[in-house]
Amino acid sequence: MSNEQRTVSEEWAVEAQGLVKTFGNNRAVDGVSLNVRAGSIYGVLGPNGAGKTTTIRMLATLLKPDAGSARIFGHDVVKEAQIVRQIIGVTGQYASVDEALSATENLVIFSRLLGLSRSEARQKAAELLEEFGLTEAAKRPLKNFSGGMRRRLDLAASLIAQPPLIFLDEPTTGLDPRTRNQMWDTIRRLVKTGSTVLLTTQYLQEADELADRIAVIDRGQVVAEGTVDELKTSVGNSSLQLRIQEAQDIARARQTIERVLEVQSAVSAEGGIITAPMADADRVTDLLIALRDAGIPLAELSVQKPTLDEVFLTITGHGVEDEVKGDSEKVKEAAQ
């Protein structure tokens, strides 16, 4: 490769333009554009089946996009796939390690494939196991590993070549809170050494904890993008939930809420509960007074931290699609 090509801008770790992937009739990814600055943590937030995994698989050269293009540190994922593979690490949603082998054997094989000598590979494996607290379990077959240990090994395997860009597909889904926090610490440490991390998550809290910027994906499209603060402002830090005693008052109550809080409100599917983003807690007092003045009796009032549901409600105007459909799409995605 020429020097000219090697000096491509390093400012952007990922530049994706209008990525499209269709599975049969399902447009899993429908024109996703993303720009990830080198050295940052970028979160892709969305429900099951939104197209997160498919997007990552295209960026990681595992799937060819049907349309659009993507470059990793300036290298095209289709035309320069083998170069891209040298500068990325991928940790999938399902542990991509060999179940039948031990942790050490897994890491040694991946290291050897990456061109390390036998002794270097052994050393690298020992180093990584130590770092990820897996030394004691190094010789055991993975069948006996817990979910958290498997994820850690998986991440360790992605770091052998010290890739400048790491893809993490739902790194904490299914982990208990303690293991999840450990994973978060690891991801933060990674970025300190100069890596760029692109992670997908279903949890707003996770994106909030880790990501510098977030893209919200829904039905294969980016519906919002920005820093955590920008996104939060648009959602409201928390949401207010009001249960009205008399169902016929709901319409009037929503008008009052929208007038006083100056936000959009929504009625839950079960009916009876009005949800509205609470951007400014002080205004709740005004709202309660207004409701009493209007003669609308409340049955219950609660404040809820924003969930993915609220983000969606606010950004897309519809809630998270029912899980069953989402799951079946995810299975389809995985099967491709």
Binding site: M1, R6, T7, E10, F73, G74, H75, E80, A81, Q82, I83, Q86, I87, I109, R112, L113, G115, E127, E131, L159, Q162, P163, P164, T186, R189, L190, T193, G194, S195
Partner: peptide, 29 residues
């Protein structure tokens, strides 16, 4: 993630092809 930081992309030697020798080594691994 040891103290050494990640080698920037511009300083890496990157090749878009796989040599026969590498294919053989990979197959043996």
């Amino acid at each position: 993630m040891n103290s050494t930081s990640i080698k920037p992309v511009s300083e890496r030697r990157l090749r878009n092809t796989t040599s026969f020798k590498q294919s053989l080594q990979n197959s043996l691994t």
